[in-house]
Every structure is written in C-alpha cells, then in structure tokens.
Design a protein around this nucleic acid. Structure first.
Lengths: 241, 241
DNA sequence: CGAGCACTTGAGGCAATTCAATGATTGTGG
DNA sequence: CCACAATCATTGAATTGCCTCAAGTGCTCG
C-alpha cells in the first residue's frame, strides 16, 4: 500500500517535513506535496519541557499539532481537584480538535516533547478540500476511541495489580512497538501521573510496583527505568486475554 | 445551517426514509436524495427485543446501522467474565465501524430497539464518494470519544454515590434532551447493566439508589421509573461542575 | 397461588485509601 | 565537594468504602 504512494521527488517535499515521522504514520501522510507545502508555511516546531501545558481544559484552542517526539497526557479535572488522565498520545499522533473551539481536556507534555503546530482554521480548510485527510483523522479518532474504551474496562473492572500491569504493558508496547522479551524502557510518567491514569493513589501504585518487582515480573532501576523479562507474563498479570 | 440543506421535494426521498429520525440528526442527513435512495435499497429495518445481541466482541461485522428507537449498550468483557459497558448509544446514533472487519466490543439492545441496517461495504463505498458523510461520521466518533473520556473520569475518580448520580444525570439529559426540573423517565438499563456501566456491583448500585431516594434527590416507582424533582441538585451529587 | 426473576437489605471481610514517617534522588548555594 | 532543601518514591499502620455472601421483599407470569 505504501508502495502505491506517489514516488515524487523528495525535492517537492518541504524541507522541514522531510525528516518528519508524521509524514509516514501521521496525519500529514494524507497530504500531497503541494498541500504539505501550504501547511508547512504556517507550521512551527515547538520544544516542550516535561510538565509544560499545551492547552487547558475548556480553553480556546487555536492550533493543532503533530507530536514529533515524546508523550503528551490528556487530563480531565473535577472542580475539587481530583483528576484523571483520559488519554496518552505518542508520536506521531495528532493533537487537537478540528471544528471545535474549546478543548474538552487539558493537554500537557509528560516527557520532553517536540510538536509541529499549525493554525486550526487552516487545517479545517484543508480538510474540506482533501477528503483523504479527514479520513486519516477519522481513523486516528477511531483508534483513540478504542483505546479509551479499553481503558474504561481497566478502570472499571480491574484491581490495582492488574491496572499497574496493564499500564506497564501499554507503555512497553507503545514506546517500542516491537517490544519483545527482555525489553527495557523509561517510564514517561511519574508515580503521580500513573496514579491519575489508573484511578489509584500514588501509594497504591508504588506498592504494586514493589509486588511486581518481588514476583520478578519487572525490574526497576532509578524509579523510572523498567525491564520486562517476559512480556507475556506481564500480560497475564494485566488480565488481558 | 440546516436551512441551507437543499429543500428538494420530499417525493425524492425514499419512502422508508421519510419519517426517519436519522435523516435529521443522524448520519443520513449528510446524503443527497439519490444517495439515500441507493442506500435505502439495501437497508432493512429490524426490531430488536431488549437483550438481543447485535454483534459479539471480536466478531466479523458485515453491517452497520442507525438506531431509530431505543438504547444499545456496547460491552467489553474479560476472559474471566468481568464486563464493562463502554458506551451507550441512543437514537439517532450510528452503530458500527466502517473500514474495520471486527467489532472491538459486543453490541446489545438494552431496551426494545429499532435499527436500520445496511451492508458495511456499501457504506464504505459511499464514504469515498461523499466526503460530507465521512465528516458526519467523524463528528459522531468525536462525540463518542468525549463521552468515553468523561466516563473515564467517572470510573476512575468518583465514589459510588457520585457514579450513580452521574448515571442518572446522563440518562435524564440524553433521553429527553430538554430535561427540566420535575422530569420523569424510565431507566433503559437494569441494575445489573448499571453496575456494569459504573464499575460497581448490583448491591452497591441498589444501596446508592436507596440513599438518593431517602435524600429526596430522586423518586422511584416500579424499580425503573425515576423522577428527578431538581436536576441541578442531582448534578451536584454527580460531582459535575 | 407458587415459581422465577429483579431488586433490596444486612452482616462481615478485604482491598484500597488515608495519614504519617522514612528513604532515595536531584538540584542549589556555600 | 559537601551540606541542605526539595522533590519523588517507598513503607507502615489504621481506617473506610465497596464487595462478598446470604437472606428477604416485591413484582410478573404461568
């Protein structure tokens, strides 16, 4: 299928886009070189330190973006401060909401992150002229919906151990999609973030990490670096079929 | 915006579609009379008794549908039988997943339901020719994603009382969108379904109903018929800003 | 009227939270 | 380079909210 993609000279591709991941798996892969050129004229790269808020819950959102590198967390908060992470976006995911003025949740860089932003209205105009682009965005939203619903099962029906194992499995498989036994990675989230993602407290998360470590399901170094000797064993602990 | 929709003679509209709700709020509103005609030739109405399964988790899904009347619940299940309702669809919502062979969850009529089904591949072909249709479906998926994420907050961070109140509020506002004080409605879900929706047990749901009743937040008759004297008070119990 | 089902209510147990203290790691200024 | 504070994570003890198990109530339908 990718073979079919027009093999135009790379010189037609805007310079800033040439090395860009999003041009392959991401939303921009639906665009022609001309469209890429138009978009890239108004796009700009931004580096975000871990913890930087991209947009707040209920705020006006004038730009969309592609994630080039890093992890962005989407958070929804209650008036009394309780909060829940409702989505984790990895490169080369699309970030934003065409045709909606307000963001339904806040978005914050979980790790150091690099994004490529462009005006929302520009994207909206391109969408009407490039159905393939809307198709692409549509597919990503469907993917996000499936993930959100998977997570609803985790939140509603799994116990603390299964939740933490599910989280580790998610990160292991999303960070390096070809994760195999013995894989290692750095957690993109702090214990507090993990708790907000799993609907638990920091203490419970910590206790479950310890348990999984003692059962040799994972190894942990420096709080963030995790090694999974047997990914299928982790999967079993996560309660996934 | 709806004013702009071409005011063609209603005689152009297929007979079966004329009285159909989905032609207004639903996916079909994006179609021209000709497209409607083509689709309606291969569509068929089905009445589903409460409890009828439309499609099972992981099953091949050859048809899509619009919900004409009733409520459909989307359920995801764990190998050991624990289950979670991951979505509730009301008329005139769209049901199904174009461009995906397998259903990521089971779909079951929660109440007596009427749907209008059509072959998935037909819809897929129309989507490529009618960008407005894809736009419409895209918008619905975005709505579902927002709802799923709202529910993640409920599942992860609310206590039993807030969960039950949130559910009642959801039903009150979705069943009769113009719900005002003193409104009454029949619950489309059994206590067991409600428990599966909220990540609770039947007993806990029941106890919270009793509590809310004793605090005069709701009145209950015949287990299913609920009256809400003060919708804002219910909303406060739900922990919504 | 009795069987079957859905729902309610009660008693006791347990998993996760809360509260509190300790340990580890990182960054800062002397 | 060390001392110190600050932040993040772990561990322990006590509490509690929800679950489990069990019994009871109230519909509906043959």
């Amino acid at each position: 299928m990718d073979m079919q993609r027009s093999d135009i000279h790379s010189s037609d591709i805007p310079i800033v886009c040439r090395a860009c991941e999003a041009r392959h798996g991401g939303a921009c892969s639906a665009l022609s070189p001309q469209q890429l050129g138009e978009l890239s004229k108004h796009s700009s790269r931004r580096r975000l330190q871990a913890g930087t808020e991209v947009v707040g819950q209920g705020e006006e959102m004038a730009t969309c973006a592609n994630i080039m590198r890093g992890v962005v967390k989407l958070t929804r908060m209650m008036p009394d401060g309780r909060q829940q992470i409702v989505g984790l976006q990895f490169a080369p995911d699309f970030l934003g909401r065409p045709f909606a003025a307000e963001s339904p949740h806040s978005a914050e860089a979980a790790t150091d992150t690099e994004i490529c932003t462009f005006p929302r209205h520009l994207l909206e105009r391109m969408v009407t002229r490039a159905p393939e682009l809307e198709h692409r965005l549509h597919q990503q939203v469907l993917k996000e919906l499936d993930e959100a619903r998977d997570w609803m099962l985790t939140l509603g029906r799994k116990n603390a151990q299964e939740k933490v194992a599910s989280f580790l499995f998610l990160i292991a498989t999303h960070y390096d999609p070809e994760t195999v036994d013995g894989s290692a990675f750095d957690l993109p989230l702090s214990r507090a973030d993990i708790a907000d993602f799993l609907g638990l407290t920091i203490e419970t998360v910590s206790r479950q990490f310890t348990k999984l470590r003692k059962e040799n399901v994972i190894r942990i170094e420096n709080n963030r670096h995790v090694t999974v000797p047997d990914i299928e064993r982790l999967q079993q602990f996560a309660g996934i079929d």
